[in-house]
Simulated scan of single mutants.
Amino acid sequence: MTEKLSEETRKTLLQPLYDMGWSMVDDRDAIAKTFKFADFADAFGWMTRAAIWAEKWGHHPEWDNTYNTVNVVLTTHDVDGLSALDVKLARKMDGLAG
């Protein structure tokens, strides 16, 4: 079962994500990042690769795409906040973005 991140765990797991450009969402226990790509095809290709992992892990992002930009919000609705799944998917998304 997925659990909400504890305050102590947050300090360890979230700082590397902040260093990679993720930030907390105002008024929500969620993290967000904007990814920019060379063009629409690169953005959509990245979304497709990320979607495969999201589906495999059963954890789906809130996101939108406009041309070469993808805005992502991660939170775990089952625990009403951040969980290890959000951290895992954020790391994967960063890795896929290069």
Rank of each mutant, 00 (worst) to 15 (best):
M1D: 07
M1I: 12
T2P: 12
E3Y: 12
E3G: 04
K4Y: 10
K4E: 08
L5R: 05
L5P: 15
L5F: 06
S6A: 10
E8I: 09
T9F: 09
T9M: 14
T9Y: 07
T9E: 15
R10V: 03
R10Y: 05
K11N: 03
T12E: 15
T12M: 11
L13Q: 15
L13G: 06
L14D: 07
L14E: 06
Q15C: 00
Q15E: 10
Q15K: 12
L17T: 00
Y18P: 01
D19M: 10
M20N: 15
M20Q: 15
M20T: 08
G21N: 06
G21C: 04
W22Y: 02
S23M: 09
S23E: 04
S23R: 08
M24C: 00
V25E: 00
D27W: 00
R28G: 00
R28V: 00
D29T: 01
D29P: 15
D29G: 12
D29E: 13
A30S: 03
I31M: 05
A32L: 07
A32E: 10
A32N: 04
K33E: 03
K33M: 10
T34A: 04
T34I: 11
F35Y: 10
F35R: 02
F35G: 04
K36A: 08
K36I: 01
F37L: 14
A38S: 10
A38C: 07
D39E: 08
A41Q: 12
A43T: 08
A43H: 09
F44P: 06
F44H: 02
G45R: 12
G45Q: 08
G45A: 14
G45W: 02
W46G: 14
M47Y: 03
T48N: 13
R49Q: 15
A51P: 14
A51E: 13
W53K: 12
W53M: 08
W53Y: 15
A54C: 12
E55I: 06
E55W: 10
E55C: 08
W57I: 13
W57G: 09
W57T: 14
W57K: 13
G58N: 03
H59G: 05
H60L: 08
H60P: 07
P61L: 01
P61I: 06
E62M: 12
E62V: 14
W63T: 02
W63N: 04
N65G: 11
N65I: 01
N65Y: 03
Y67F: 14
Y67W: 15
N68T: 10
V70H: 03
V70D: 03
V70A: 11
V72K: 01
V73E: 13
V73M: 13
V73C: 12
L74A: 05
L74C: 04
L74K: 03
L74M: 04
T76L: 12
T76M: 14
T76C: 10
H77D: 05
H77C: 04
H77I: 04
D78A: 02
D78I: 13
V79H: 06
D80Y: 06
G81D: 01
G81S: 06
L82V: 01
S83V: 11
S83Q: 04
L85G: 02
D86Y: 05
D86S: 11
V87A: 07
L89E: 11
L89P: 09
A90D: 00
R91Q: 15
R91S: 15
K92Y: 08
G95E: 14
G95N: 06
L96I: 11
L96Y: 09
A97G: 05
A97L: 03
A97D: 06
A97H: 12
G98D: 07
G98L: 08
